[in-house]
Computed example of a mutant assay.
Amino acid sequence: MTLDAQSLPDWGWMALAIALAPAIGSFIGLLSLRLPADRPVVAARSACDGCGRRLGVLDLVPVLSFVALRGRCRSCGSPIARRYLLLEVGCALLAAWAGFVHPGPLGLAGALLACQLVLLCLLDAEHFWLPRVVTLPLIASGLLISALGGAQAALHSLIGAAAGYLSLVGIGALYRRLRGREGLGGGDAYMLAGAGAWVGWIGLPTTLLWASLAGLSLVAASLLAGRAVKADQRLPFGVFLAAGTWLTWLYGPLGGLEL
């Protein structure tokens, strides 16, 4: 899949993505805290958790504000959550990675994908929750970006979204019938639909392979650390799906298949 644009050179697209990513990363930090708590996202202004002072523009400049304030509120000296700095820097690095592998406007699209995956990773890792308010935009953005690449890419994306959703819904129903309990969260199917929208139906097997390897790596690391993994222990499958989606989008399906 390719996106053609002549308005900016390749380095310009990468610079734009890297410039925007920290601000999006900061917003992701806000969403990751407010969505699980069912707090307003847009209506309520950001404030210091220590003294309640509303934060101004100079307090909210990504990365620079944290460095200038030495990670503390200018009023009460309370520490600023480092998750914001990590997300701002991390999203910028992911944007650079996308731009390096896919120079041009497609790299900017990759930065958008990365930011959505980061938010889903946080929500699933911390709350075992993949809300539709995040997974549905993942599907929609994948379909839109693919449509810009032409009719064939759009068709592959649409089939990928449908196949991703139906495959996990079917597996979940089969597990429930055989084991008498839920084995997959409802958000996993929507997230795999989003993956299919971004990588197409051809990329779905590779996405699931990478996700499985990521999950097995976590289990192996836990065993090496002396922490036994119980058979019924919950694992954040969305985190593994995010890794699989990202690697497949960057480097394509294994075996050299292309859309």
Rank of each mutant, 00 (worst) to 15 (best):
Gly196Thr: 12
Leu86Asn: 02
Trp97Glu: 14
Leu122Ala: 10
Asp232Leu: 02
Ala81Gln: 07
Ala228Arg: 10
Met191Pro: 09
Ser217Ala: 15
Cys115Leu: 05
Glu88Gly: 02
Ile18Gly: 05
Gly149His: 02
Phe240Ile: 06
Asp188Gln: 10
Trp129Ala: 13
Ala111Arg: 04
Arg82Trp: 10
Trp249Ala: 13
Gly110Thr: 07
Lys230Trp: 08
Pro36Cys: 07
Pro36Val: 07
Ala44Gly: 01
Leu259His: 00
Ala189Asp: 12
Arg72Thr: 14
Met14Ser: 14
Thr135Glu: 02
Leu55Ala: 06
Pro36His: 09
Val169Gln: 15
Ala111Leu: 01
Leu87Thr: 06
Phe237Val: 08
Val89Thr: 03
Arg234Val: 01
Pro137Gln: 05
Phe100Arg: 06
Cys91Lys: 00
Glu126Met: 03
Trp97Gly: 04
Arg177Asn: 12
Leu138Trp: 02
Ala17Pro: 02
Ala125Asn: 14
Trp129Arg: 12
Tyr175Met: 08
Ala15Met: 10
Gly77Ile: 12
Ala151Lys: 12
Gly172Lys: 09
Ala214Asp: 03
Gly164Pro: 02
Ala81Arg: 09
Leu69Arg: 10
Arg74Val: 11
Gln116Ser: 15
Arg179Asp: 11
Val118Gly: 06
Ala109Phe: 13
Val169Glu: 15
Phe240Glu: 06
Ser32Leu: 11
Ala195Met: 11
Arg83Ala: 04
Tyr165Pro: 02
Ala81Asp: 12
Trp97Asp: 07
Leu55Glu: 06
Gly50Trp: 08
Trp210Lys: 07
Ala173His: 06
Leu108Glu: 07
Arg179Trp: 03
Ala193Cys: 09
Asp4Val: 08
Thr135Gly: 02
Leu113Cys: 07
Leu247Asp: 03
Gly200Trp: 01
Ala225Tyr: 01
Gly215Met: 03
Leu8Ser: 02
Val219Leu: 07
Ala211Val: 08
Ala5Trp: 13
Leu87Tyr: 10
Ala243Trp: 11
Pro253Lys: 06
Arg227Ser: 13
Pro253Tyr: 13
Ile145Gln: 08
Gly215Ile: 11
Arg176Ser: 15
Trp201Thr: 04
Phe128His: 14
Cys76Pro: 11
Leu31Gly: 00
Cys73Gly: 13
Ala147Met: 10
Leu60Asn: 06
Leu120Tyr: 06
Ala125Phe: 14
Val169Gly: 05
Val57Glu: 00
Gly215Asn: 05
Ala47Gln: 15
Gly186Trp: 13
Pro205Leu: 13
Trp198Glu: 01
Gly29His: 06
Ala5Ser: 15
Gly170Ala: 15
Ala37Met: 12
Asp59Trp: 00
Gly172Ile: 11
Phe66Cys: 01
Trp246Phe: 15
Val239Arg: 08
Leu223Met: 06
Glu182Arg: 03
Ser167Gly: 07
Gly194His: 05
Val199Arg: 09
Val219Thr: 08
Leu94Arg: 01
Trp201Pro: 05
Ser222Met: 14
Ala154Pro: 04
Leu208Ser: 04
Pro105Asp: 12
Ala243Leu: 15
Glu88Ser: 13
Asp49His: 13
Phe128Val: 09
Leu106Asn: 01
Trp210Phe: 15
Ala189Leu: 09
Leu16Gln: 00
Gly52Trp: 12
Ala109Asn: 05
Ser75Tyr: 09
Asp232Ile: 04
